[in-house]
Amino acid sequence: MATKIIHGKMQRLRVYAWEFPVRLTHWFNAFSILFLSITGYYIGDPFMHAYSSKQWIMGWMRLIHFIVAYVFLMSVIIRMYWAFMGNQFASWRECFPVSTEKRKEFMDALKFYFFIRKEPPYVIGHAALASFTYFLVFVVFIFEIVSGFALYSVSHPPSIVWTLLGGWLLNIMHLPTIRLYHHFVMYVILAFVPLHIYATWYMDPHEKNGLVSSMFSGFKFVPEKEIEEAEQ
């Protein structure tokens, strides 16, 4: 699994960190967010106007939004399933920095981003700060899915399927309020996107571990001594 390579002064090992379902769902999520944001924004504020009733702009936007919403739902389900079935780097346990070691890692990463610490904490999979952030991102994803199905349910005859997928939310929130939050939370996700890309772009040359390509190939290049430390 791990192949020794020589990189600069440091011995690095090639480690298979991200398994196929992790990479697949990552890119499905990324493209879903892109399509859902564009079509969803149009549905909330139709910025293009048809001048002939032969056009079907809102129709297409809603159709794409609903189809991609199902793709996104499946992607999120697969990733959550893999949090229980995948390797240690994909595990749900990564999300919660509860151990002393993880808490230190979490604080070290925060200090690094706020210029207090020069070195980021070196880890093979997710850093504690990153994985906790992804946990919050998934909470936000699930809110978008549930609120989306709540809004979608009102154009269907009442059925247990729609109630389970999101219709139950109508019992505790008014329809316009759900619409507002569903719309607003899009911006929360859109704020996360540059943060995520920036952090990756910034960390990749810093860690020299092939962070960007790892989300394509699955492999990271980790200094040998860090693996030894991790195994202790």
């Binding site: 139709p46 293009m48 106007h49 048809a50 001048y51 002939s52 009733s53 032969k54 056009q55 079907w56 702009i57 809102m58 129709g59 936007m61 809603r62």
Partner: peptide, 8 residues
């Protein structure tokens, strides 16, 4: 029909 077409 105007909604689906995108006529607002």
């Amino acid at each position: 029909a105007h909604f689906d077409a995108g006529q607002f």
